[in-house]
């Protein structure tokens, strides 16, 4: 079902500060993402999940280790040109307030210099995919939180990236919207066949969406568990919670995630040391 590895992380380490204030957030992360996969990353809050995704998306640079994309290894962060292969969705809606929905989705095309009719058509296509075609002239303050996140997803897809990186995209939304958007994201993934790496703190969400779940320990974070989610995708619908395998995995995963919870949180530790 899944093909060769799309990108690979090798011995990734991330540290902040220096000397006495050195904090190791990510210790030694090795994994590869296969094309077409849906990977969920879970772990205790503050365990560096966001940091890992930001390194993968080129927003931050790793302190040590290398990343492979398109058969090139990068030791000093992902260069700007390569970031076109990703679409990043942030935790809080990250739309530009002065642009309409349509213009917001257009932003990556402007930055990358993708001109031409087929790209312009893609904006409408993506808006339709997330169900916002009727709202393309609205400003962000006129949209609900769920709609804004949908627009962010459309924006992340408009330039036809190889992979979608999502950092707890539904965390700030209410439970019902969250569930709705989960199903919608599943549908989008099935229709577009993109590779997806998503951070979530919801076991339900991970089991609904992911083909593989990676659990990080608390800082200094390592991968402590990798779980293959073998529930067939045609069974993943509203009746999923009755599925036997689902219940088994749910309990297993919940225990694992709870087990990674500790009271030490690296960012707070860092701040305390600086103060």
């Amino acid at each position: 079902m899944f093909n060769e590895s799309l990108f690979e992380l090798n011995a990734i380490r991330k540290q902040y500060g220096s000397g006495n204030t050195l904090v190791t957030v990510l210790d030694k992360i090795d994994f590869s993402v296969r094309e077409g996969e849906f990977v969920c990353i879970m772990g205790a809050s503050g365990s560096g999940k966001s940091t890992l995704l930001r390194i993968m998306g080129g927003i931050e640079k790793q302190t040590a280790g290398k990343i492979r994309i398109n058969n090139n290894w990068y030791k000093d962060g992902i260069p700007p040109m390569e970031r076109r292969d990703f679409g990043y969705v942030f935790q809080q809606d990250n739309l530009l307030a002065w642009r309409t929905t349509e213009k917001n989705v257009n932003l990556p095309l402007e930055i990358f210099g993708y001109k031409g009719k087929q790209w312009k058509d893609r904006i409408a296509e993506m808006l339709d995919l997330v169900g916002l075609l009727n709202y393309k002239e609205c400003y962000p303050h006129e949209l609900s939180g769920g709609m804004r996140q949908r627009a962010s997803i459309a924006r992340a897809l408009v330039h036809d990236p190889k992979a979608l990186l999502l950092d707890q995209p539904f965390g700030a939304l209410d439970a019902i919207t969250r569930k709705e958007l989960g199903y919608r994201l599943l549908k989008i993934w099935k229709e577009t066949g993109k590779t997806v790496v998503m951070i979530t703190n919801s076991v339900d969400e991970a089991l609904l969406l992911a083909s593989r779940i990676i659990v990080l320990s608390s800082a200094p974070a390592k991968i402590c568990h990798i779980i293959e989610n073998d529930i067939p995708y045609q069974d993943r619908d509203e009746s999923l919670s009755d599925n036997f395998e689902y219940k088994r995995l749910h309990e297993q995963l919940s225990n694992i995630v709870r087990g990674t919870e500790t009271t030490d949180q690296p960012e707070k530790e860092f701040a305390r040391k600086l103060a």
């Binding site: 080129g58 927003i59 260069p79 040109m81 076109r84 990043y88 990250n94 930055i111």
Partner: peptide, 13 residues
């Protein structure tokens, strides 16, 4: 900050 990161995620100049 999040907006700056948005630009960085696209490799904007």
């Amino acid at each position: 900050n999040s907006k700056i990161e948005l630009m960085r995620s696209m490799g904007a100049t």
